[in-house]
Write a protein that binds this DNA or RNA. Sequence first.
DNA 1: CGAGAAACGGAATAAATATTCCATATTGCG
DNA 2: CGCAATATGGAATATTTATTCCGTTTCTCG
Lengths: 276, 276
Amino acid sequence: MAERREQRGATAPASVEAFLARIEGMPATLPRRMRQCADYFAAHSDRIAVSTVADLASGAQVPPSAVMRFCHILGFAGFSDMQRLFRAAFVPGLSDYATRLRNLRDQGSGSPAALLAEFVEAGRSSLESLAKMTDDAMLGRAVGLLAVAQTVHVIGLRRAFPVASYLAYVFEKMEIPAMLHDGIGALDHRSALRVGDAVLAISFAPYSEETLGLAQQAKTRGLPVVALTDHSTSPLAGTADVVLTVQEVDFGAFRTLSATIALALTLAVAVGSARE
Amino acid sequence: MAERREQRGATAPASVEAFLARIEGMPATLPRRMRQCADYFAAHSDRIAVSTVADLASGAQVPPSAVMRFCHILGFAGFSDMQRLFRAAFVPGLSDYATRLRNLRDQGSGSPAALLAEFVEAGRSSLESLAKMTDDAMLGRAVGLLAVAQTVHVIGLRRAFPVASYLAYVFEKMEIPAMLHDGIGALDHRSALRVGDAVLAISFAPYSEETLGLAQQAKTRGLPVVALTDHSTSPLAGTADVVLTVQEVDFGAFRTLSATIALALTLAVAVGSARE
DNA sequence: CGAGAAACGGAATAAATATTCCATATTGCG
DNA sequence: CGCAATATGGAATATTTATTCCGTTTCTCG
C-alpha cells in the first residue's frame, strides 16, 4: 500500500502547465481508455473545473471508473484532487481564501497581526488577478482617449475617492491638467466640462449617483468617458467609451484597493508618457 | 406547488447579463442577508461556476440557507439550477499569472501593459516586505491607543491624503467617530482636538508642515499620537507615541500605496473590533 | 495456444453537497 | 406596546457525485 502510493502519488502535477506537459509526455502505448482520457482532457482542460466525473467520462466516451483510474495514474488522490488544481487556477487563491476566512472567524482571532496577514494576502491576490485579467487593448484605448484631452476630469466618491484623489495628485505631478470632482460643498462643477476634455469616472457597487451623473453629462456633451469599475455590466459601462474592470479580493467587508490603485496609476503614468 | 413555482420561478434570469441586471435592479430595502448575497454575488459572479454553496455562503458571510433563499428569490429552482447558468457560460481565465506577467514585460517597456506589470510587481514586493517587517508589538500598541480614543483625528496630505481619506471612510463605515483633517480652505481645525481624543498622522518625505504641526499640537495637549511614516527617523517619529513604518517599493517616481493602505486598513479594522 | 498480467466496466458504497423545514429572532405596524 | 408578518440559522434529510471493489474481458509473450 505504502509503496503503491509512493509510486503513483509522488508525481502529481502542481499546475495546469505541468498537467498538460505530463499528458503530452505520456507514452504512445497507453491503454486504450487511458489514451481516450488523455486526449479528451488535453483538448478540454478548460472544462475540468466545471465538470463532474460523469460529464467528462461521457465526453471522453469512457466509463466513470476509467476517469478515476486516469486521475490516479497522473498522481492525484482522486478526481476532486485534480479538479482542485483547475478551480484554483481560475481565480487565484479563491478556495484557499474562503477557507482561511472561515478559520480566522472560527478561532475568533482578531489579532492585528493576523488581520495584517489577511490584508496583505488579499492585496496580493487582487494584484495577481489584475495582471491576469486586464484587457490590454482596452487599456491602450483608455490611454489614447485621455492622452489627447485638454483637461482630464476625475471623479470618484466614497470608496473610490482615495483612488480619484491619488490620480489627481499624480496628474498634477506630471503637469497634466486635471480636475478632481469631489462633492465638496455640493458645488456642481459640471459646467467645467469643455469640448476637448475627457472624463475618468471611478465607481464601484453601490454606484454613487454623482459619479454616474457626471459621466452621463459628459456623454451628452460628446466628451469621451473612461470608466474604472468593478464589472463590465456596471451602470457606468453604459455611458463609457472605454470600460476598465478591476476586481478586488475583499476580506470581510473591506478592500485593500491595491489593484484599483495599481491600475489607476498605470493609466496616469501611461497618459503622462503619451503626452510628451 | 405549481403556482408557487410560477410565482417565484417565472422570472429566472436566462443569462449572466440578465442575472447581473436583476441584482442591480433589486430594491434597496432587501433584507439584510439577501443584500449581502446580492452584493457578494454581483462582485464575484465569475466564481459561482466553481464554488459550492458553502464557499459562497462563507464568502458572503451568511449561512448556507440564506444562499438558498436568495437563489429562490431570483427565480431559480435552487443553487444547482443557478450554477448551471454560470457553468455553461464559463470561459477560463487567461494564462497563469507568472506567464502573463512575463508577457506583459516583454512587449516593450513603454506600453501601458508593461507599466501595469511593473506596478503590480512593485505592489507585491511592497506587501511582502510589509508582512515581513511590521512590528506586531507596535501595531498592538497603536490599536490600543486608538481603541480608547473618543474621536480619532486623521491627517495626511499630498501623497498620504488618499490613505487618510480611505481611513476616514472605513472609520465611518464602522461607526467610529473620526475626523479627517484635510487642508480645505486653509481652515484650521486644531481646536477640534479634545481631551480623550487621539491623532493618527500619516506622512512621508517630504513631510508636510501641516501634518507635523497637528501632531505637535496634539502632543502639547497630551493627546496620544500614532504615526504612519516611512522611517523611524522621520520628523513625525519625534512627536509620536507609537511609530509604524512602511516601505513602499517605487517604480520611477511613483508608488502604488499598496502596503500603506494595507497597514492603515489593518489598523482601522483592528481598532473597530477592539472597540466592540 | 494458454497462463499470467493488465485493463475494463458496472454495481455497491462512501463522501460531499444541496435542499428543506421549523423553532427562534427580528422587524414593521396599528 | 403587542401582534402579525417576515427573516433567520441550524439541524435533518435528500440528492448528487466521487470512489472503491471485484468479477470479467482483453491483451502479451513464451
